[in-house]
């Protein structure tokens, strides 16, 4: 084999190697894109509650409304409202409409009330929690609200993802730069230096 033949063979190997690397990254992107671009179903969380948590009303409302974030596809919905003596004032099964669960209430005495909810979602996850309100005839204003005329629901939340840690961000950025550098190394090889 002549030197020229050898150089051509080497060149073909380099080209094949680069094509293989390119194919790898194309395949990786194809496989990884869904993970990056496809939004996972948003987690279901309580977004707002009416009556608002810890509010004091002049009279017991006609209903309690719980609004959730995410896609609320529930196979079971339970809501119970009870007074400080444990007497249940929620009447009938709760109704799920869109992302809001509404439960009618019976008349009740002044005092503290506890709202307990539990949703079993179609995907097997469950969400549960509590909220409280109180009834005091001496409280200002207050017409008892209903689900339809309720005051704007009070946003209850939620930033569960902690802010990115500076060290983690720095390390991730450094790694990204190193990855690009390594890719450049693998794809481009200059002449030998003295």
């Amino acid at each position: 084999m002549t030197d020229t033949d050898g150089q051509r063979a080497t060149g073909r190997r380099v080209t094949a190697s680069r094509l293989a690397l390119l194919a790898f990254f194309v395949a990786l992107t194809a496989v990884g894109a869904p993970a990056l671009l496809t939004a996972e179903p948003a987690p279901v969380r309580l977004a707002a509650v009416d009556p608002a948590a810890d509010v004091v009303l002049a009279a017991i409302p006609e209903s309690v409304a719980l609004r959730f974030t995410g896609d609320v596809a529930a196979r079971e919905v339970h809501v119970t409202v009870a007074d400080a003596n444990g007497v249940t004032v929620s009447a009938g099964p709760p109704a799920l409409s869109g992302s809001t669960v509404t439960t009618a209430l019976r008349a009740g005495a002044p005092g503290a009330y506890l709202v307990v909810y539990h949703l079993l979602l179609d995907d097997g996850r469950s969400i549960s929690g509590t909220s409280r309100f109180a009834v005091d005839p001496a409280a200002p204003s207050a017409a008892p609200n209903t689900a339809e005329v309720a005051a704007p629901l009070v946003e209850a939340e939620h930033a569960h993802v902690p802010p990115p840690d500076p060290l983690n961000l720095a390390l991730t950025a450094l790694a990204a730069v190193l990855i690009l550098a390594l890719l450049a190394l693998l794809f481009s090889r200059p002449k030998v230096r003295d």
């Binding site: 990786l28 990884g32 961000l169 991730t172 990204a176 990855i179 390594l182």
Partner: peptide
């Protein structure tokens, strides 16, 4: 192997920091 491992970690970082997913939802590729 090394790059594939990093691709997994960077995907997780993207899912957490950019898409705003919770860590349990950020499982890479």
């Amino acid at each position: 192997v090394v790059l594939a491992h990093w691709a997994e970690h960077l995907t997780q970082a993207y899912q957490i920091y950019v898409l705003g997913r919770t860590p349990p939802q950020s499982r890479g590729v």
